[in-house]
Design a protein around this nucleic acid. Structure first.
Lengths: 338, 338
DNA sequence: ATTAGCACTCGTGATACGAGAGTGCTAACA
DNA sequence: TGTTAGCACTCTCGTATCACGAGTGCTAAT
């Protein structure tokens, strides 16, 4: 569909535009990239590429900039060169063993990615359908108030405070959690009914209180919410791409709410490196931005680490950065010498 | 020091500037606020007030705007009218009983404050010197990896993953935590040595593993870190005060890092409503912004909920908003009907 | 098929200019 | 002595104008 030379022109334009941030003209391309051809030749090619939808002009008689389709072409060619999906998969799994726990790991990953990329680092973990629970703990906070701690398989911690119909002692709560923890590692849906029956039979004293506690537990197990982390966003204010405030505002608003992050996670359809550019995004707020993210499924949870930036992002650098961050995330530290 | 009329002029100028966002001239004041006096009179007063440091001119022959000192005057007069510190104190204490736990409560508080004030809602809790622990739980995640859950008094949960020198079974870990939890409600420093001796004596089997676990626990108890929450920041991009990007960028950067939030908490020196304006702030990033925050000490922890915005903030509205948010934070929900 | 040449377009930055808002000062006034 | 009217002066802001430069599209020559 595209001639060899057209492809060369395309890649040159995208590369140069990412580098400089200014629309690139035929003369620039002919001088710096395809030195064997005159600017007029390039001009003709660019005109064709525009008609095909790979390039566009901000205004008549200015250079060309890539369309989403143009970026896609470029990104695919970069991905072919530096396919790091296999590494990413390995390393993202080790997040669960990070010394700050999976949440701490994701938080610091998003933070680091923000810092070194100068875009916005993001990270999230979201349980899939069949999540298994690892442990439950009830902590009596005060009269009838109980803190419910649930550890999902993989180390993700959920917490909730609830009020029970009776004031139960900590000893009794311990007894209750011990009985539930016998089923550690099971899917909730599998053990739900038998667990209920078992608990109800054994602990008749506080039947309704136990029932309430189980209801709360079920609430967490059935729809455990996404945990999302966003790194520093302030760096992006420097970028020339976001000179006009309304654009960056829409993007910020999107990233600041949980639904936005959930959508980003959802858009990572395959394991390894995912790249979603501009118009390819569903949400209007992302239509002029791009996401580069590594994702994997592990322990019944989908984990994602990535970067959100302008369409005109330094994709190559971001991809290698993500890979490097994943590699250098400290797993759990070995026992230090005393 | 200030005559009655000078005070009236001051309050009028600040009020009008907060309302309109534009520097206010003598004519405006004489027409809308001190109708009994001509603009020339006001002009003279304003000139004096400028000399005294309450007002300044952005440029010659433009209206006046308040200095930090001027805002201080205004804010103190507002605080005198609507002193809500007593309510705030009551209500901030009930945060611990919020159905999402104290962390969830703070997060949603900062979120709501952002939304209704259109500035940036902030919230944080930081343990003071003598924090007491409520409960400890060790969860075996995998071979030698253990998730350490610590609940501080008041319901604040800290978590950490660590690797122990031996692979201990969950039963053994349960035994260990049970022995520690006997001391629930005590200050760490008080029980530290006796606890160590007691554990070491009782559990000789895995001495060094237990010692490692206790070390980790100590790490959390001795310097438990601040937990800070920042609401949506995107609204502020609309404000005319932040048209120039570098200013808002510095502010964002400040709020995005934990040290920044820690400094805000530290600057809340008294219980109830604290207001720190512009130059009164220590950090350069806040020199042209202001903080309005309600804070209280409870359970050996300092809790703060507030709003960060431009110096030209609608202080009156923000104060009442914070008060209202604190009142309407749902405490733990009562048992619902089955 | 490629390239040189040329007329045309459009954004950008500099400059100028007038309108408007506000001040400071002086002189008149109660 | 405190207050007010009047007036000249200052500074910002928006608009219009103009020249420049970069880039395109088209045509004709190679």
């Amino acid at each position: 569909m595209l001639t060899e030379r057209q492809l060369e022109v395309m890649l040159s334009v995208v590369y140069e535009y990412i580098r400089s941030g200014e629309s690139v003209g035929s003369r620039t391309v002919s001088r710096r990239y395809l030195t064997g051809h005159s600017s007029a030749t390039i001009r003709n090619e660019m005109s064709d590429l525009e008609e095909m939808g790979f390039l566009k002009q901000p205004h008549t008689s200015s250079g060309r900039i890539p369309t989403t389709l143009g970026y896609r072409l470029y990104v695919d060619s970069v991905l072919q060169r530096v396919d790091s999906s296999k590494y990413s998969k390995e390393w993202i799994k080790s997040l669960g063993e990070h010394h700050k726990g999976i949440e701490g790991a994701l938080e610091s990953a998003s933070d680091i990615l923000s810092r070194v990329s100068n875009y916005v680092g993001v990270a999230a973990v979201t349980p899939l359908d069949k999540v298994k629970f690892q442990r439950v703990d009830f902590v009596r906070l005060g009269e009838r108030n109980v803190l419910l701690l649930v550890v999902l398989q993989g180390g993700l911690v959920h917490q909730k405070v609830t009020s029970l119909p009776w004031d139960m002692t900590q000893e009794y709560l311990d007894d209750l959690s011990r009985r539930i923890n016998v089923f550690a590692g099971c899917e909730w849906t599998e053990i739900k009914t038998s667990l209920k029956a078992y608990i109800m039979e054994e602990l008749q004293d506080y039947k309704s209180a136990c029932a309430a506690a189980l209801r709360e537990l079920e609430g967490i197990m059935i729809s455990p919410s996404i945990k999302a982390f966003t790194g520093s966003m302030s760096h992006m204010l420097n970028l020339p791409d976001f000179q006009d405030l309304s654009r960056i505002q829409a993007l910020y608003e999107f990233l600041e709410q949980e639904e936005g992050m959930a959508e980003l996670v959802k858009s990572c359809s395959k394991e390894g490196i995912n790249i979603i550019i501009g118009e390819e995004n569903e949400s209007p707020a992302m239509k002029r931005s791009a996401l580069v993210a590594a994702s994997t499924v592990c322990n019944g949870q989908m984990t994602m680490i990535g970067v959100v930036g302008p369409e005109r992002m330094d994709y190559e650098k971001v991809i290698t950065t993500i890979d490097r961050v994943l590699r250098t995330m400290d797993p759990v530290p070995e026992e230090e010498a005393e």
